[in-house]
Design a protein around this nucleic acid. Structure first.
Lengths: 153, 153
DNA sequence: AATGCAATTGCAAATCATTTGCATTTAAAA
DNA sequence: TTTTAAATGCAAATGATTTGCAATTGCATT
């Protein structure tokens, strides 16, 4: 699986497409892996914990997590979201879909929506007088209680 | 305008409907006024500054702002929102309308939308399989650049 | 108008997430 | 292998928000 590589370089793990414009380091490769293996967006703390789950020595720093996420964000492979129903920001690989969630206020489970309601929003926006506002993005978040928690709010 | 009142009581300012279940204090009355006179949601810091704008002595505390907002929130007269495009939470009187905004990423101006796109969202939601999720609320936020800032991003 | 008491306030210290400065290490090009 | 800019780890700084606690205040009752 792993191809021959120059020692000291991180050109292994060819199975993970590496984003252009981000220098490869072992911490970034790990963070990228964690993001790509997760099916929900993760907080910096969650990423940090997974990164260091077997850490006895050689732990990775919290600041590295934040700086790496920022580096990924800059080249557009990671999106940071601040959900109303969460206290901290969450990060996810920018797959181009599944960017809206129904978030459980109790257990914080995030159920991705199949599609983006942007199509439903556009006609709505045209009825609004936003005074020349140039829309570059939007956020939509549904919150409430998941099937497990709704009986024990 | 101000009616006769018992001294030491804050039953003046009858023109502002006072919410049930919140004890009247001068700091809360002021905070409530500030919220009701604002046409955009305000951060705790903005409220704090307006509250103390003429303060030389007798300043009000930051913690009082937060605790008062919490008291208002508990009885449902204030709504706290965390906008993606802002770093801090904002608070507004729960008027039952104008709860969605287009937020300028540069100057932070918040243009309220005339109507809530909930009606546009509902049919969208029914096409989603949210696995028994009970929806109690939603947040929609548009961001970009206002007419003034879009030329000088 | 005086009294009593729980709720509220002010202040400072504590949190919590996130950011930053700086000396050290490392990726990857020469 | 050498070189160098970029990335890392650590600890300290930041900024928003919360909390403990003693002092104050609203307001109902004498």
């Amino acid at each position: 699986m792993a191809l021959k590589m120059r020692p000291g370089s991180y050109n292994e793990d060819i199975d993970i497409a590496w984003p252009d414009g981000v220098k490869k380091t072992k911490q970034r490769v790990n963070i990228y892996k964690i993001l790509s293996e997760s099916n929900t967006p993760l907080s910096a703390a969650e990423i940090y914990n997974r990164l260091n789950q077997n850490c006895s020595k050689e732990c990775f720093a919290f600041s590295t997590v934040y700086r790496s996420l920022l580096a990924f964000e800059k080249v557009g492979v990671v999106t940071k979201s601040v959900l109303v129903s969460e206290e901290t920001a969450v990060y996810e690989l920018n797959s181009g879909k599944d960017r809206h969630y129904a978030v459980c206020l109790k257990c914080h489970k995030k159920i991705p929506m199949k599609s983006c309601p942007l199509a439903n929003i556009r006609p709505f926006l045209s009825t609004e007088n936003l005074d020349g506002f140039e829309v570059t993005g939007h956020q939509i978040e549904i919150y409430g209680y998941c099937s497990t928690c709704k009986n024990t709010k």
